[in-house]
Design a protein around this nucleic acid. Structure first.
Lengths: 104, 104
DNA sequence: CATTTAAATAAGTAAACAATTATATTAGTG
DNA sequence: CACTAATATAATTGTTTACTTATTTAAATG
């Protein structure tokens, strides 16, 4: 049972279109910042800032591997969010369009 | 399966703290505008505008009865929203504090 | 260890949004 | 039918928030 304030915060976090798209992308697979930049067609700082908010809200998890920092979903303990993400259209096609070496 | 745009809109609608509180109140029972004004301790136009947004988003239903217009929940066809509201703390106590004749 | 590159942070701008104050509807009832 | 009371709308203000541009940090690897 969450407070209204907490729930409001969480909903605001995922209600942004860019962040919701990022979460939908991470449903397909983990991704580095530059992957997301390429798909969203926006700037790197913009994506970094959204990822920071998602991380602070406990929605994603980050791990460095080589040059890149990979972000992945972390919503197992958030049933509402999980359900909502389940209902999002698949991003498979857009993810597939990523050039293999886009971030080199 | 909703689009990201639609879902984003819906989440934004319910992520506002005032609107989320209104929905939580309507979970207890239908209410007229002045009831909500009294509980939220804000102005009447503020509540009217939030209600208008909720109505446009299909979250509430209105019906006039005597002097008053009563608003009630309309989320049966919105499973996400319904689940989220289920998780909100009960507003029973705050509703009970309403003076019987608060809106005369 | 210096260079390169991915990502983060800082600072500034613009747009979206909630709240306020003021005014207009609208319907019920004396 | 005029008056009152409840709600809606309009206009304004202030805050929040996303996005951009510029700069910094940090780690990997040659």
């Amino acid at each position: 049972m969450a407070t209204i304030e907490e729930l409001s915060e969480q909903l605001k976090l995922i209600s942004d279109k860019s962040r919701l798209t990022i979460l939908a992308l991470l449903k397909e697979r983990e991704m580095c910042v530059c992957d997301i930049v390429e798909i969203l067609e926006t700037t790197q700082p913009n994506v970094s800032q959204h990822l920071k908010k998602l991380k602070n809200g406990g929605m994603v998890h980050e791990t460095r591997r080589g040059h890149w920092i990979y972000y992945s979903l972390n919503v197992e303990d958030k049933p509402h969010v999980k359900k909502i993400l389940d209902d999002l259209p698949s991003m498979r096609d857009r993810v597939a369009l990523l050039r293999k070496e886009s971030c080199d």
